[in-house]
Design a protein around this nucleic acid. Structure first.
Length: 600
RNA sequence: GGCCCCGUAGUUCAAUGGAUAGAAUAGAAGUUUCCUAAACUUUAGAUGCAAGUUCGAUUCUUGCCGGGGUCACCA
């Protein structure tokens, strides 16, 4: 539809002003609500071609379109804005093309055309020494949603994560557990594995602080004390033992990581995210070390006298960056070089590698991509840092050491609880079994949470106020879920009344209500919005879209009656329109990773 | 200090250089003999400051003011 109108405008410019223009250069925008029309063409820029005022240009193009196309029924111009009013016929036809009878999921409105490109999306990538928190929730929901959006726009997507399973942080938890744990396990304590290990990470930090204080009292400087606290030295010793694969340390490492993975998996499952392939830092850091050795030979990196290895990026306006410590152990960058390499070996046809990581690491990724380029990997250009803003609390930034974190498991549970009490207040659990009700609370609570975190532009920092942030009214997940459930109720009734709406005599449909026209238009916009969301890596665009669609449907619902309509074909048309709206809501919410209930 | 990001209704968020800057929430006022009122309708309320480019600037450029991030032999 849009394309046909653009073509017609190009023809109009050609025949009226002898001006040739490509379709791509013509931009149409949806007409603002307070003017009549569906599409608006801005004529300001064409004034110098027509040598007439913007209004006169609009009048001429408008007349041409009315005379020469079936779609444009009339027009109006306001200043340099040409508003095109579509013929009713063409709107009904548009719906007919989008609607695929009863098999809604195969509707042309959201058919996917594969583009043959493979994309790897990395997200989550936690450390294995503490449980997931609110920041991880934004990360996971974002990464998962972007994967779905890329798929919907035709890519083949592989979802991966790198698990930071080695390093000093996990040794700290291990050491504290040995010291204070008394053999405690998830089974013996009933604690979720990741929370148990996190508990000992905190215990380490506490003991470490006590030792520092003691040393300072004994006359050490703060700085010395921080470096020489016995418990820290012991943790460092443990890391060295781990690197030598000391059987005892290695076994403990495997045991405690196992606890964490078990805990993470339960969290991921509840979050509704998953991965196609896992990478472990313990498997990639050695590759990174190899590459650094190669880089030294090639002269890309250099070794200092103390044995540490560096790269000099000052020609690129950046600093020098450490790649290997003087004791030869690897740093963050070392591992990331190895991981990137492994991925391009695993997926040779990869057209893009997307890292979903917070914006505090922008510098790190800038450096990483530059290093990969310097090492001569042509695919360095295909790496992209999907950088997102932090989630702030009303008290400021979340800091795990200060205990101001919002735990992911707690938050999800709280959301489900809120959904439960809200549903019960409204008295909407009649006809639900206990299990169904529980499932509903989960869908609603998680829906509210995901929608809340995804509706904001990912690049932006956002505020999360536990007391007020999560609403169930207004621009929220449950609002959209409710709209879907309501439509499903209509469809159930239609089935009960045995009204078939797979086949409709479209040529008899006329006198559409304003909200019906708007709905058809909204649904027809789905693919375009997916393409935009994909290009921008922004679930927020889909969230905005599905919200607008739900709002439009609620307007239709309030103003137009379906089952009181006397004309049977029109009644069927309205049911079909509702059905396709529901499916569009479902598919769009699916791209956000949010489920929609049949009843609520 | 260098580099990067952000300043929009009381609050939380929108706005490919386009019309009278949209929503939600909180406030005020309404809508239920009719398909689910977690809904709908009406109302009031905002672009940090100053220049520049443009037919047109929340958007682009520069300066200032304010907030955040980053520049680790942490990850």
């Amino acid at each position: 539809m849009e394309l046909q109108i653009k073509e017609a405008i190009a023809r109009a410019l050609g025949s009226l002003y002898n001006h040739e223009i490509g379709i791509a250069e013509i931009s149409l925008q949806p007409t603002r609500k307070d003017f009549e029309g569906t599409y608006t063409f801005v004529t300001f820029p064409f004034g110098r071609i027509s040598k007439k005022s913007p209004e006169a240009t609009g009048e001429e193009i408008g007349s041409f379109l009315v005379d020469n196309t079936a779609e444009v029924a009339s027009f109006n111009t306001v200043k340099g804005f040409l508003n095109l009013v579509l013929s009713e016929n063409s709107q009904v036809e548009l719906f007919g093309r989008l609607y695929n009878g009863a098999d809604l999921s195969k509707s042309a409105a959201f058919a996917i055309e594969k583009n043959g490109k493979t994309v790897v999306v990395e997200y989550s990538s936690p450390n294995t020494n503490k449980p997931l928190h609110l920041g991880h929730l934004r990360n996971n929901f974002l990464g998962y949603s972007v994967s779905k959006i890329l798929e919907a726009s035709g890519h083949d997507v592989v979802k991966v994560q790198i698990i930071n399973d080695r390093g000093i942080h996990i040794c700290k938890s291990m050491l504290a557990w040995l010291r204070f744990g008394d053999g405690e396990s998830p089974e013996s304590s009933g604690l979720k594995g990741d929370h148990l290990v996190g508990k000992y990470y905190v215990a380490f930090d506490k003991a470490y602080k006590v030792e520092i204080a003691t040393l300072v009292e004994g006359g050490s400087s703060q700085e010395e004390a921080e470096k020489q606290a016995p418990i820290l030295l012991e943790a460092q010793e443990m890391l060295k033992k781990w690197e030598r694969k000391d059987p005892e340390v290695y076994a403990l490492w495997e045991k405690m990581n196992g606890w964490v993975y078990e805990g993470f998996n339960r969290t991921y499952e509840r979050m509704g995210v998953n991965f196609d392939k896992l990478y472990y830092e313990s498997e990639t850091y050695l590759i990174g070390k190899d590459k650094i050795a190669e880089g030294i030979e090639k002269g890309v990196f250099y070794k200092k006298e103390d044995g540490s290895v560096w790269v000099d990026l000052s020609d690129d306006g950046l600093d020098e960056k450490l790649l290997l410590r003087k004791d030869g152990t690897s740093v963050y960058m070392t591992q990331d070089i190895g991981t990137a390499l492994m991925r391009f070996e695993d997926f040779p046809t990869l057209s893009q590698l997307i890292y979903t990581v917070g914006n505090e690491q922008e510098y790190h990724f800038k450096v990483l991509f530059l290093i990969l380029k310097k090492l001569g990997y042509s695919w360095a250009e295909a790496c992209y840092h999907l950088s997102y803003g932090m989630v702030d609390l009303p008290t400021g930034k979340m800091k795990s050491r200060e205990g101001t974190v919002v735990d992911a498991d707690d938050l999800m549970q709280e959301m489900a609880n809120t959904a439960e009490s809200r549903t019960k207040e409204l008295g909407k659990i009649e006809g639900f079994s206990e299990e169904q009700a529980k499932e509903l609370y989960e869908v609603l609570g998680l829906g509210a949470l995901k929608y809340f975190l995804l509706k904001v532009d990912p690049r932006r920092r956002m505020l999360f106020d536990p007391a007020e942030s999560i609403e169930f009214q207004g621009n929220t997940g449950p609002f959209i879920q409710y709209t879907h459930a309501r439509i499903k109720s209509i469809l159930r009734k239609a089935n009960q009344l045995e009204i078939g709406f797979a086949e409709i005599a479209f040529d008899t449909i006329s006198d559409l209500h304003e909200t019906e026209k708007d709905l058809v238009f909204m649904i027809s916009q789905y693919k375009e919005r997916v393409a935009l969301a994909s290009a921008e890596y922004s679930p927020a665009i889909m969230a905005q879209y599905v919200y607008d669609l739900a709002k439009e449907y609620n307007r239709f619902y309030a103003e137009v009656s379906i089952f009181n309509e006397a004309d049977m074909e029109k009644r069927k048309f309205r049911i079909a329109l509702s059905a396709l709206a529901a499916e569009t809501i479902k598919v769009s919410m699916g791209l956000l990773g949010v489920e929609v209930p049949e009843k609520m």
